[in-house]
């Protein structure tokens, strides 16, 4: 059979795909060390753009603001999203479940301009009618990010909950644990990886959002993507390349650590299985 030929073809496809995905990022990184301001002409190695990046106060305060909002909205999204996942998977039928399911999956595909505009109009109307929120700023961005992030968390966690073997929980109940204890000692530890994955996803999505934040932010609450966008609109700037490089580095490091832990656990598990069998 032509397994060899198909194998070669599929490797070619993968290599092509990965080249397409990674080459632009690689080029971005290379030119962050370019001496010249012209991003496409190589004029020698330099790290001066990193220096300029760190001296850019507006950029740095935007970084801080973005991290703060991302941390808080990811945490809130994990709490709300997990509840939503439980409601979705475990609550059986309840009134409005179809609507509920729809509201959880819709934010995944909803164009950002619509979400952004609708939330802004909500905040404006609310402050007119209720007097709250008083102005727009990090609070409104936090609410907006929590809303679309909880949908992502709910999807990730509900997938894991569905995989969970219900017999484990039933066994725990059979052994005398009440529902709350079952949740704390059995369900939570098993879905914990999904919670972590959901939190990380929410964190990066929040850190990355330009459109929704632009709608619902107010004066004095400028997030990093907003600063980057206004700079990029004016043309390419090596400072942005430097920022991109640091971001890629952070993501790559996080991914590597995650991979390393997963691999170590897997190796450990295999070793334990082997030693259990050899006994």
């Amino acid at each position: 059979m032509s397994t060899n030929k198909t194998n070669k073809l599929s490797w070619a496809i993968l290599l092509g795909g990965f080249a397409f995905l990674y080459l632009p990022i690689f080029i971005l990184i290379v030119y962050s060390f370019n001496e010249s301001r012209l991003v496409t002409v190589w004029a020698g190695f330099s790290t001066k753009w990193y220096g300029e990046l760190f001296e850019d106060e507006q950029m740095m305060s935007a970084v801080w603001m973005s991290l703060k909002i991302a941390f808080l909205s990811a945490s809130a999204a994990v709490a709300l999203g997990t509840l939503a996942a439980i409601a979705l998977v475990r609550s059986g039928a309840f009134k409005g479940k179809t609507l509920f399911t729809g509201m959880i999956t819709a934010p995944l595909v909803m164009p950002e301009v619509i979400t952004g505009l609708s939330l802004l109009l909500l905040f404006v109307t609310m402050s007119q009618v209720l007097g709250w929120p008083e102005g727009r700023g990090s609070l409104t961005i936090w609410i907006a990010h929590t809303t679309f992030n909880m949908a992502y968390v709910a999807v990730v966690v509900s997938a894991r909950l569905r995989e969970l073997d219900r017999r484990l929980e039933e066994a725990a109940m059979d052994l005398g644990a009440n529902k709350f204890q079952v949740f704390i000692y059995i369900t939570l530890p098993i879905v914990a990886p999904a919670l972590l994955a959901g939190w990380l996803l929410a964190f990066t999505l929040s850190l990355d959002d330009l459109v929704i934040a632009s709608f619902v932010s107010g004066p004095g609450s400028t997030t990093l993507p907003m600063v980057v966008f206004s700079s990029v609109r004016l043309g390419v700037s090596p400072k942005i390349n430097a920022l991109a490089t640091l971001l890629v580095l952070a993501v790559a490091m996080a991914a590597f650590i995650a991979w390393w832990f997963m691999r170590r656990n897997e190796l450990q598990r295999q070793k334990e299985i082997r030693s259990a069998f050899s006994q």
Partner: peptide, 9 residues
Amino acid sequence: TSFLIRIYA
């Protein structure tokens, strides 16, 4: 990594 920055690339 950032959507914005990948488009910028």
